[in-house]
Nucleic acid binder design. Sequence first.
RNA 1: GCCCGAGUGGUGUAGUGGCCCAUCAUACGACCCUGUCACGGUCGUGACGCGGGUUCAAAUCCCGUCUCGGGCGCCA
Length: 436
Amino acid sequence: MIEREYTSDVTADRSGEQVAVAGRVHDVRDLGGIVFLILRDARGELQVVFKEEDDADLFERVQELNREAVVRIEGEVTASDQAPGGVEMVPDSLEVISESTTPLPMEVSKDVDANLDTRLDQRFMDLRKPEVRAVFSLRSKLLAGMTAWFDEEGFTNVDTPLLSQAGAEGGADLFPVLYYDKEAFLSQSPQLYKQILMGADFDRIYEVGKAFRAEDFGTSRHVSEIGMFDVELSYIEDHDDVMDVQEDSLRASIEYATEHAQRELDVLEVDPELPDERFPRISFSEARSILETEYDHVPEDADDLDTKGEKLLGEYFEEQGHPAFFVVGFPNEKFYYMQDVPGDDIASRKFDLIYRGQEISSGGQREHDYERLLQRMEEDGVDPESFDFYLDAFEYGMPPHGGYGLGIDRLVQKVADLDNIREAILFPRDPERLTP
RNA sequence: GCCCGAGUGGUGUAGUGGCCCAUCAUACGACCCUGUCACGGUCGUGACGCGGGUUCAAAUCCCGUCUCGGGCGCCA
């Protein structure tokens, strides 16, 4: 490794020590007889002072540097009231490791904001900004906290195929790919495989994966390649058991992030803390009546909440101190794999988790009865024969089970309070964007 | 897929028919400046998405096209 220390470790109390730092030329402030170089690395910045009288050669060379060049500087730590953070460095040597050309495709060190599209086009440069990178360390911690909870609870981390013959939810909006000489599709959900694993007695599983949706949307909360945190578990009484898992794991995730990513949360100026009380679980019909009585809003589709409805409900519960809540029991289930119990007073065993006015996960109890599943598939116009690989797992005994899929990108977007979901993804994919 | 709105130097913007061979900031180049911290100052380089059309005259109006943003649908 190249010998260096992080700028965050170069502190005033180390005054007099010789250290080496490496990073980027954030800025060069040439005041005439004195030049300040601000060096930026992954953890912070450090001011390096060049004076003509100290070293004429270094003094000349620092003025030739371009912003964003990669350099390594050795020198002496100096405490100074005039320096930012009370500490700076007096250099002995300056090595240019990699030059940078000009002009930059966007500003990194100046307060000139770029549009999101420009930022995404120049993502490598955009990501050099600490406040942009903070989103991704936060994302990493949210996932770490969540997986830690599942590991602790005895869930097995699995991987299911991203290439398959057919989608779980019909043939529309799938990306076709050429699979040798056959047509295949990119997975839109690990749903069928999670259930097969329930039939294989895995009992409790989670998967951190991807899902692909070929819908031609154009919103700030949709992308074509989605980060998904999928969960499935067996021997549940009903969908409430699944919601318990969803709620507890989300709490664990956010608590972990609050503990291990406080610096990032500060940089992003957000506080994702959840109240101690359990998330409210309201029925679909309660949701509709809140919308109608409180906001005079009636979603057009009688079987669903619309975007505006979700936002309004989000406001309603936010005011009551609940950024997260479940809407349970949607009257007309669309998909055969969801359990639809005749005469069930909650209409169906499906739930959506709404966090800060946005649906971030969706799940429920699944149909585990082979005959009813067959019947539902036929009602949905799905040919059971092409799903033999799935149905076989039900024919030889299937425990009652349920699960959900959580949109990781949406979770990060909401926790970090980002305007656009693309900001929560390093290299987002949408109908127009396939690079970088 | 539908409905709005917008495309101006590297970046972010001002400019709604002639006052625009286009404003400001930042960047970039040159010069001045010994404590800046978005350093400051002087000078300079650099742009109207693309293709048609209307008009004596178009960044500005119209049509098409591409791209972006917002909303809706749909969802995670």
